[in-house]
Design a protein around this nucleic acid. Structure first.
Lengths: 240, 240, 240, 240
DNA sequence: AATGAATGAGTATTCATTCAT
DNA sequence: AATGAATGAATACTCATTCAT
């Protein structure tokens, strides 16, 4: 094999693992495959990582940390800000926009955010694919996708929750709101990344065409949902 | 083990495999686990199936055949019918509904269809989960999810295509239309099935609550998209 | 499978086993292969035979019995007869022909015998091949080839021995005589059968050409050895 | 097990395999037997060899390479030399010795060669036995025994052929010559090695007695064939 | 930091044989 | 006489991991 300075070999191992896990899945990837793809001796992998599982955990945790900080950043600089500015009100049974202008601002900010998110997931599509694979299996990463909904939790660490609970003790997101977020927002975005290459292959679109097509569809849906009705933003605290 | 009449053992093997593959994934499931879960001798599995892969293939193929016939059935009895009845027109650059009544009929039919589909996927959630897992790995089932879009293909066997191409030689679905179908319709439904149990666990909803929540969200999206604008139904034959 | 009268299925099983054992060897032949080649159900094999080994034993024993009776027949009708007729004398240290005519008669008879033997081994080449294979492995048939030398043994059942020991109590074949018989007579003939098809393939000779080439070479060797010198017929009783 | 320096374990594996294959045959030898006989971990066998077959191939190829170089060495230093010296002539229809002295030299050289060969095959009797076994089965080593006749081929790499074809364009070995070589020279020698231990057991001869008995019989045959007649050296180019 | 050798516990698959009918 | 189903014991081969250097 090769002798290279520092922990450059560690990087190669991680990249090889990402490539292989995302292609064949964690279980079907052999440590020896990873070693030869990374161009390192098999035993060296155990110098840098405790176990095969450890490599996976490192990748998944890195991504989740990253993603979470992007999401929280948006919440902080947008939703929280809008509430503070009085554009968005927390009513006992729903979130309410102060004006049409508020709605427009929210949509605009959201669109910017989604672009950022889409670029992020495309950039990390391999790990996203791995994450999705693992989320479909029992094991420690089974609920990883639900981590993306953390900012809907009643959680001390969730800044959005802190703001909202300050204003309305009993505020609860509606079931539909949460379900919409998960199955029609998080899942499509994550799937978009996970199936990016496959979809490209069957659609014959370029990276850019695919990205902008996805974004424009996404915008249509969000826009048509937010404007006109706020059904999904209704609070369901009364129901339960 | 047990000795039971006929190929009842074969059924037990298939069910055990579905259960285990959907929990731990194909690669992490051991043939011996399948055997003991099915309460059969390990060797008997090889009496009924050529290999572990063969079990998977059987399950996947069965599901795809089934699903396809449900989809084609809907197309036949709804879309094709509406075109014949003059409710839906194929224009050179888009699909166009004849009237508000036509839209209502379409939405109603669609809702009925989606209910049927949702019930089907819930019933087969384990195999769907397996399918999704496999679609994320390289291998023979990698593109299985795209099979659900077959009725958008220019394919002799596709009854919808035959009708449309009869009316408009050059009709082509827009990129956005196809992408919407895949990432915001097929993927959410498939994911709904695949993550059904996980989502139930985190949401504390009952089966029925989850089912109806999903359907109501789905209806909102479809309704808000179809009525008011037909952007996604626009033909992109001019673009290309 | 087929239902055929009587133990015709048993024949098919034996023939299939002969074919497969001679091609792939006993160990590499699967009972299921034999069943499908014989066009019978696998379990039926165990109706007719105690075990896989039992099939082999039956074949080998049949051949050895057969071969032995051919050999003994020759000895009886030739050597024993010649001794009785006074053409061949048993001297304390060698076998001695009474005259040139006696030699000629012996050679002629031998030639006839070898033709018969060659035809016999060609006809049974598959079993011979199996026999040779088994003689090269440890196991119950390891010494099967040495059975062909039985009529050189001091054995009550050996008619030749009875005659000779009647005339000369201490007569013993020389080491060289026995070794010659084994390595330059039995082994070539047996090998001729065992490699018949292979040799045909590499030599592009017809069955008949091969048979007569072998016979003519064999005759040359025997003739050149018997006439002129009787070194190999010398008794080694003095040596030991 | 044991942990020993270098690839000494590899040697032990090969020797264990030779021992076991020659006793029980390739098919009946278990990899685990080989491992325990070699005193190595079973998995280590797969560290050094791709498969069980790979071990066999290695052994067979090594022996064939070895044997071939011994044979070619003899041809080079004897036959080719005699032709060059004018002791041996290539006539259109036969090989012809220039004088009785030439015959004597040839016989003497041959005898020396055969002694060398016999020693070689005794030393390698286990692999020879394996080779013989494999040559009787279908598979990649089926024709391995015929490789020993390569120096009778019309082959650019064959030094004997080059000499002969230089002198006589159309020279062809007679069928009988080739057949004699195979069934009465190669086969007996190979069998002598393969059955060495078995023959020893039934004959109660010592290694040395057996070796010299075989050699003396062999010499008798060769001598009686070469001197007096050259039937087997006759060219059959006219026949074909 | 790197590696060749080694290993325990598996892992899919096979196979001779048996059983019930 | 015949067969579909069933099984215990193997069987070749793999794999994550460790060790000594």
């Amino acid at each position: 094999m090769e002798k290279t300075s520092g922990s450059e070999a560690r990087e190669r191992i991680i990249n090889a693992a990402i490539e292989l896990f995302s292609q064949k899945g964690y279980d079907a990837t052999r440590v020896s495959d990873t070693a030869s793809t990374a161009n390192v001796n098999k035993a060296l992998i155990y110098y840098y990582f405790k176990s095969k599982q450890d490599i996976l955990d490192f990748m998944v945790d890195s991504l989740l940390d990253n993603a979470m900080s992007i999401a929280l950043d948006f919440i902080q600089t947008n939703i929280v800000q809008m509430i503070k500015n009085g554009y968005l009100h927390i009513k006992p049974d729903r979130l309410h926009f102060a004006s049409d202008e508020a709605i427009n601002i929210f949509i605009q900010n959201s669109v910017k955010f989604y672009e950022k998110v889409v670029d992020y997931v495309i950039e990390n599509k391999d790990i996203i694919r791995i994450l999705m694979l693992e989320s479909l299996k029992s094991g420690k990463h089974q609920n990883s996708l639900f981590h993306f909904m953390k900012f809907m939790n009643k959680d001390e660490k969730n800044p959005l929750f802190k703001i909202i609970s300050g204003a309305e003790q009993d505020f609860v997101y509606s079931h539909e709101m949460i379900l919409f977020r998960f199955f029609f927002s998080i899942i499509p975005i994550v799937s978009f990344a996970a199936y990016f290459d496959d979809y490209k292959a069957v659609s014959s679109l370029s990276d850019d065409e695919l990205r902008s097509s996805f974004l424009s569809v996404y915008k249509i849906i969000i826009t048509s949902l937010i404007s006109g009705r706020d059904i999904l933003l209704r609070n369901n605290s009364a129901d339960t």
